[in-house]
Design a protein around this nucleic acid. Structure first.
Length: 554
RNA sequence: UGGGGCGUCGUCAAGCGGUAAGACACAGGUCUUUGGAACCUGUAUUCGGAGGUUCGAAUCCUCCCGCCCCAGCCA
């Protein structure tokens, strides 16, 4: 129970109040993505809120694709979104809906509004409509077509859908108030002519509904109680309410909350798409991306993401959450459940001069010291080992507890070793290997005489390990808010991906993609789908906290 | 200079007239066969500012300041 005391939030309060005073008797929410891109962690927040509120109040949540603009939507996105929501851990049961399934009903309702004198066909161009809309401080001016007869509107609207009017030549508009201080109420467009085949309805429709017109109807048809959306739709709520009131149909309550912003990354679908298209990243599932597909490939767990969404809360203030919180949630989740292993990323050879040639010992190592019931594994030990370059310093600085000439450290689960000689390449001066001696009396990594060693290194037997590629990720952008300066593309971090070759325990040489582990003292990793037997690829999901790096950095 | 929102610790965020939760981050410390984890301690006399109401205000009122959103036939 990580969250003993879950804070309230204004949405919970509102829903509770609506149930208490009878405004609604059951809670039905919906997650309404447009299938024009992949889901990202910002959507995860919305999903957790939409499904979470429903669960909390014993209601249901629909998955509904808001597919009202076929020019931008694709089946690939529909499939990916469903997979991502399911992966995140939410179930919409049989309640998979599509706005496009409601096009007929919407059309009939449009005719109802026309007949009520509340909607009209406008012949003005997009440009003219824009100009006549007025400005923030000046009212708009009515279209010359605003007072057409109902009969003419009806016939024109039918012709729009019949396909004998060119794209963009006419729109259907709601007749509300061209002088409204809320621009959304200045006769908003309800339908545009777009002779584009739809991924689900084919070429039946020549006109497609606009968001403002469609969304409330979709909610109403599904008898949604609470339509939860992000802040920028607050201005649209009067219009949402207007359509529903004019039609006299079921009227959900729209409540807006602040979107999630995460520092050092970008959340705009448009910008994510752009990075995918110009190949700044390998695809929608590039592990550096905040997409759910990317986070998944990177090694984030659904549990950690849900925990994150719970911790960030829900409010109406625009805010930017620290990426460190997301990382914290992942570490906390993985620490308890993931097996440990040893891997050397940047190898330095150690030769134990007093260890018998050809001898191999099978040493016991904990699979997960946080959960001893997970048992032990055997790790082969021999005369030649790899250790991490960072675990040796020829000239150790203060507070450096690791190996150095004349020093003794522990090889985890193995023996204490002492460094006696540093072997260098005579040409370059580069350290090629270390000659050390081991203390046979310290088998397992502890000594009977109570002698203490400050440092513990991980290691791997050169003869028993397997080569592997490690992909180390850093933040995708160099500054907290990538939109600052000359645009997000100018703030890309050139070092966001580093590929290095090292060694892993043989037991991991056939790990399936997605397999997660902690490489001791390094971080949490997961096998990438690019892996092949004998040529494993591991993504570093998140490093372990490194207080030595912090000491040394300052 | 129109309308709609928002301003509580470095970052999120509770608080709903009774005297500032929690989390992350940060800083110390204990412990440790991961310089990990765990555990302890510290960190807003103050809630954008100024007035006012009240025995009492982050919470109510007034004015001011700052930030975000809206002029797509996108969602």
């Amino acid at each position: 129970m990580p969250e003993a005391s879950v804070s309230s939030n204004f949405i919970r309060d509102a829903v509770r109040a609506d149930l208490a005073d009878g405004r609604f008797t059951k809670v039905i929410t919906r997650f309404p993505p447009e299938p024009n891109g992949y889901l990202h962690i910002g959507h995860a927040k919305a999903i957790c809120i939409d499904f979470g509120i429903a669960q909390e109040f014993g209601g249901t949540c629909n998955l509904r694709f808001d597919d009202t603009n076929p020019s931008k939507e694709e089946q690939e996105y529909i499939d990916a979104i469903q997979e991502n929501v399911r992966w995140l851990g939410f179930d919409w049961g049989a309640r998979l809906y599509f706005a496009s399934d409601y096009f007929d009903q919407m059309y009939r309702w449009a005719i109802q509004l026309i007949k009520a004198g509340k909607a009209y066909v406008d012949d003005q161009t997009a440009e003219q409509i824009r100009i006549k809309r007025g400005t923030l401080t000046e009212p708009g001016t009515p279209s010359p077509y605003r007072n057409r007869s109902i009969e003419e509107n009806l016939s024109l609207f039918e012709r729009m859908q019949a396909g004998d009017l060119p794209d963009g030549s006419r729109v259907l508009r709601a007749k509300i108030d061209m002088a409204s201080p809320n621009l959304n109420m200045r006769d908003p467009v309800m339908y545009r002519i777009m002779a584009v085949p739809h991924h689900r309805t084919g070429d039946i429709w020549k006109i497609y509904p606009m968001y403002d017109w469609a969304h409330g109807l979709e909610d109403s048809i599904e008898e949604i109680s609470h339509s939860l959306c992000s802040l920028e739709f607050e201005d649209h709520r009067p219009l949402y309410d207007w359509f529903l009131d004019e039609l006299g149909i079921h009227h959900p309550r729209q409540i807006e909350f602040a979107r999630l912003e995460l520092n050092y990354t970008i959340m705009s679908k448009r910008k994510l798409l752009q990075m995918v298209e110009i190949k700044k990243v390998s695809g929608w599932d590039d592990p550096r991306l905040p997409t759910l597909a990317g986070l998944r490939r990177r090694g984030f767990t659904p549990e950690s993401i849900r925990d994150f969404c719970e911790r960030i809360g829900v409010a109406k203030a625009n805010s930017m959450v620290d990426y460190a919180l997301l990382e914290h949630c992942l570490r906390e989740d993985l620490n308890k459940r993931v097996p440990r292993s040893m891997a050397v990323l940047r190898q330095l050879k150690v030769v134990l001069t007093n260890y018998p040639e050809g001898q191999v010992e099978e040493l016991d190592a904990d699979i997960n010291p946080e959960n001893l019931s997970s048992g032990k594994r055997k790790v082969p030990f021999s005369r030649e080992l790899w250790i991490e370059q960072d675990d040796f310093r020829e000239d150790p600085p203060k507070k450096f507890f690791r190996l150095a000439p004349g020093r003794e450290v522990r090889l985890k689960y193995a023996y204490y070793i002492t460094c006696n000689e540093v072997v260098k390449n005579p040409q370059t001066g580069e350290i090629t290997e270390l000659h050390c001696t081991y203390d046979p009396a310290t088998r397992g990594g502890w000594s009977q005489d109570g002698r203490k060693v400050k440092g513990t290194s991980h290691w791997i037997s050169t003869a028993h390990c397997c080569p592997a590629e490690f992909r180390l990720y850093d933040r995708l952008f160099t500054i907290p808010n990538p939109d600052e300066g000359n645009g997000f593309l100018s703030n890309l971090n050139p070092d966001s991906l580093q590929k290095i070759s090292g060694y892993i325990e043989a037991g991991l040489s056939n790990a399936p993609a997605g397999n997660q582990c902690q490489f001791e003292r390094q971080g949490y990793f997961c096998a990438d789908p690019d892996s092949r037997p004998g040529a494993m690829v591991f993504n570093r999901s998140v490093s372990l906290k490194d207080s030595w790096a912090k000491i040394e950095g300052n």
